[in-house]
Amino acid sequence: MNNHSQEGLADWAGPILQGALTTLEIAVLAYAIGLVLGLLGASARLSPWAPLRGLATLYSTAVRAVPELLLIILLYYAGSQALTAVTNAMGFSGQVAINGFVTAVGVLAFVQGAYMTEVLRGAILAIPRGQLEAADAFGFSAWARFQRIVVPAMLPNALPGMSNLWLILIKDTALISVIGYSELFFTIQQAASSTRAHFLFYAAAGVIYLAMTLSSTALFARLERRLRRGQPNTEEA
């Protein structure tokens, strides 16, 4: 049984790198879509129209109260069933690999959107009321006010929360391995069981994820400094 353990980390470096790229692709796409969902959700939660407010509250509360893994499994089955139905109806069949990627992104974005809704809502509420009134007094249209005042004023407040969500998202991509889509952690699991070097490969997985999260933290810190450049230097901590 020992001739199996000849292959080691070097033989798996290629697939693992590929998996890491897939993980990053999934994370970036899911983050972008989650951001859009979060903006829509936050606007809906702050809208004057009660049914819309109720719907958005239901979305963000229910999704945040159920474990991510459970949601991911549930939505994965529901999502891939729906997607297969759509592609079959359009005359394609058997595009399981693409479907796996699309559902992985969709599921993570859906969960991410709920958390993003709350982060953005809090950040929008933290904008001093006078700034919005000033925009109205200057005759800004609703869109111009949103784009020129609300977004730039909210971003510095939202950024710590957004950075946290990005870190959560990177770590949540590992959950995709549970449903068998071949991203970083799924590849690692295959490598570990094929070489029987469990300790080595799971430690390597930890190092790769750590590299991703640490470099993201550094990037977000720079971004926040840049976004706060117009603000008075309020000494934190």
Binding site: L167, I170, K171, D172, T173, A174, L175, S177, V178, F185, I188, Q189, A192, H198, F199, L200, F201, Y202, A203, A205, G206, Y209, L210, T213, L214
Partner: peptide
């Protein structure tokens, strides 16, 4: 900085 799932596998299998 690492996913809880990875930690779980690390301790249980590793």
């Amino acid at each position: 900085g690492t996913p809880l799932l990875v930690q779980l596998f690390f301790f249980y299998y590793g």
